[in-house]
Design a protein around this nucleic acid. Structure first.
Length: 192
DNA sequence: TGGATGATCGCA
DNA sequence: GCGATCATCCAG
């Protein structure tokens, strides 16, 4: 949003973009009766509200996107392409839309369970996609709205960016509009 | 490279 | 209601 001010900065979605970067390196934990499954966040994307043509909140709240306008720290889970659940973290203050899509994890706990859930024999490619993550961690619509700061069933906890890792920034993927915004963030090994 | 597969939402 | 759309994944 460019206003009439004397500076030309897009402040809209500022918190969402900040949180998207801060989530890198943090741990996502899933607790089920069958045990704990967890991973370290390696890739995120920021989605804001009106003004972001790629966001579900672009036209204001709808039954599906209303949770993006609610209090932050909650899970926004939705069903995509008829077969995948995708997990987001709600970001902005209540009344303002924003969410961060969790795109990729580094496997941590529950490797055997993840492989079984994904039908894979090896660790390769286990959690490197938003649909893969929800399948491996048994996340579906039942967890929509869950408070990710409360440590109940699905939550976020401390983690860090490791020495030698840097944050790579670029356009979001899998969308048609909003490609001008560099709101995809990845932890990669510093090539230097 | 395209098919699977179904919820969502704007518009009629 | 109707149909275009979709923040994906995987086989071939």
């Amino acid at each position: 949003m460019t206003g009439r001010g004397i500076i030309d900065i897009d402040f809209y979605g500022r918190e969402t973009v900040r949180v998207a970067k801060e989530l890198l390196g943090k741990i996502l934990v899933r607790e089920t009766a069958g045990g704990v499954i967890s991973g370290r966040i390696l890739e995120t994307e920021a989605y804001t509200g009106p003004g972001d043509p790629a966001s579900h909140a672009v036209r204001g709240p709808t039954p599906r996107s209303a949770i993006m306008f609610g209090p932050p720290g909650r899970a926004y889970v939705y069903f995509c392409y008829g077969m995948h659940h995708l997990l987001n973290v709600v970001t902005e203050r209540e009344g303002t839309a924003g969410a961060v899509l969790i795109r990729s994890l580094e496997p941590r706990e529950g490797l055997q369970r993840m492989r079984k859930n994904r039908g894979r024999k090896t660790e390769a490619g286990l959690l490197d996609g938003p649909g893969k993550i929800t399948r491996a961690l048994e996340i579906d619509l039942e967890l929509n709205g869950r408070d990710l700061t409360q440590g109940e069933g699905l939550y976020l906890t401390g983690g860090t960016i490791l020495p030698g890792e840097i944050v790579s920034t670029g356009p979001r993927v899998g969308i048609r509009n909003g490609l001008d915004k560099p709101w995809r963030f990845r932890l990669i090994t510093d090539p230097k």
